[in-house]
Design a protein around this nucleic acid. Structure first.
Lengths: 194, 194
DNA sequence: TTTGTTTTGGAACAATCATTCCAATACGGT
DNA sequence: ACCGTATTGGAATGATTGTTCCAAAACAAA
């Protein structure tokens, strides 16, 4: 029987994601990873293959999330018992998060830094953005069915603009984590729901 | 009398901006710069100081623009003779540009990659985003004075949300330069103007 | 304890990094 | 033509890059 691994692979991916999230891809060296991940160079290469593969794995880990709930918007809808209130609460949570730590969003950062030149990153971030927009679209349809959002609105277009707003918030928050600015953006955007 | 420089400093900055814009800061090496800028290592260091200083200078050059018009939104308003139509035309231009070359925006990319860890970059991108938002705000006030936009709307909040939308568009366009997606976002955002 | 497989630490790799330096070159004024 | 200054190309710097490699250590089953 082989010797057991001395580290938790998913925990290492989480710490790698933290590092890449904070500094980006190019600015993180293998040496940085070895020091912050608590495993040796050999183990890193043997387990994950290399820097690029580790980055993609960390990105996937961040994308798919660690909890069972892969749909945070739906989670807020469930809590508040109303699609419209759930969307509003989700936006508030984004503002809170963005104002607290101005790291932005790993996917948004990965898109800005690497999507244009790394097809494998582009493929993943594109998928994430599509899923995100679809989650908003679904929430809006629920709101329309519940009579909280005018039924004649284009649910897909609304989903797109809501997702787009979150991307913008993540960028804005990186330079000015000012709650009033972010709150203004959210308040205006919510007006689109009728 | 000293010998005259054999290159145009602003032209070099433009080419440097192109390179940093396309690949970001870390992914561009001095060797890349020497090859694409057409000047030697010595001249580069003697004229600009170093990589970081050159990056900031290129960022400034991009920020302040080469034309006299530092306010593109105002320029579109002038052309169309209407604030509202000018804003709409500016958004269309952003969509066209984003769909054509998915480079995103240099300032947005710089924000995502470096603002969190380089105060000098953060200072500049923050200033750019503030100016951008103020330009939108001014255009909206003009629209309110012209009776094209309801006067009871919060012009500053509208300016913030419009600027935020553009940042989002720049991110979205990097992974899916799909005109219909971008056009949906713009159409919905324009509804905010009343 | 012995065996077998695997992880592990650390050395070694060539390549590239940003930066410095210097001799040679090229130009403007005389 | 000459000189003085500034630019230029290219070599050299030491540090760091991502990756490979190997002997030694560590664990699970016998």
């Amino acid at each position: 029987m082989p010797r057991a691994k001395a580290f938790d692979e998913t925990a290492v991916l989480d710490r790698a994601a933290d590092l890449f999230w904070d500094r980006g891809y190019e600015a993180v060296s293998i040496q940085d990873l070895v020091e912050h991940l608590g495993l040796s160079r050999s183990s890193l290469y043997d387990t994950f293959g290399g820097k690029q593969a580790l980055y993609l794995a960390a990105l996937d880990r961040y994308r798919l999330g660690d909890e069972a709930t892969a749909d945070p918007i739906q989670a807020f809808i469930d809590v508040h018992g109303s699609p419209r209130a759930g969307i509003a609460a989700y936006f508030d949570a984004v503002v809170d998060d963005a104002a607290a730590n101005c790291l932005g969003c790993f996917v948004v950062n990965a898109t800005a830094e690497r999507a244009a030149h790394d097809p494998e990153t582009a493929e993943r971030t594109r998928a994430s953005l599509d899923v995100f927009q679809a989650q908003f679209e679904r929430a809006i349809r629920l709101g329309q069915e519940a009579g909280e959002i005018p039924a004649d609105r284009d649910a897909r277009a609304l989903g797109r603009v809501l997702a787009n707003t979150v991307y913008g918030l993540r960028v804005t928050a990186r330079v000015s984590p000012d709650r009033t600015v972010l709150a203004d953006v959210v308040a205006q955007t919510m007006r689109l729901l009728g």
